[in-house]
């Protein structure tokens, strides 16, 4: 995608290796793929809903569940043959919300395993733990 190992760019530091997949490219791929998958699910779900009902209004409320409980419920419904357009839209929104989360997971792995940069490993791990905490919160 982008030429590897361009020194002195916005990242501020020269990457130690120019052969490996660099951080910018990795982050870019994750964000782009996440948002594209999410949009595809939402559009497919809305289109299906429109075919079934002739309108686009999804009157449906989620409450009192965290993201994992909700996705779990939806997937159970899907397995038992109750796949509905709403499920696709919901999954799309879930994928959207999880995209930044995945990006942080990937940067932790990248800093720990590839760059062995302990300062940024620590920073990204901290951000990941705060995000994970908020993911399991129910209020």
């Amino acid at each position: 995608m982008s030429e590897p190992g361009v020194p002195g760019t916005a990242a501020g530091a020269v990457q130690p290796s120019s052969r490996r997949l660099d951080m910018d490219a990795l982050v870019g791929y994750i964000l782009l793929d996440g948002v594209l998958l999410s949009m595809a699910l939402v559009v497919a779900g809305l289109f299906w809903h429109w075919l079934k009902t002739g309108h686009l209004v999804l009157d449906y409320q989620i409450s009192g569940m965290n993201l994992f409980q909700l996705v779990g419920t939806e997937i159970r419904e899907a397995v038992f043959g109750q796949l509905r357009p709403r499920l696709l839209v919901n999954l799309g929104i879930a994928v959207l919300m999880l995209t930044p989360f995945l990006r942080v997971v990937a940067s932790v792995v990248y800093f720990v395993a590839f760059l062995r940069n302990w300062k940024y490993s620590l920073f990204t791990t901290f951000v990941l733990s705060v995000l994970t905490y908020s993911l399991f919160l129910r209020s």
């Binding site: 964000l31 809305l46 989620i62 009192g64 839209v89 919300m97 995209t99 989360f101 908020s134 919160l137």
Partner: peptide, 30 residues
């Protein structure tokens, strides 16, 4: 994205993320 995600999970669990509003707006936003 990360800042918003940290708060979004909490709003979501409260039922404050409505598909009716979010689906069309998010498509436009993208």
């Amino acid at each position: 994205g990360v800042t918003a995600a940290a708060s979004a999970f909490i709003y979501y669990s409260r039922g404050d993320v409505q598909l009716l509003l979010t689906a069309p707006t998010a498509i436009g936003v993208y």
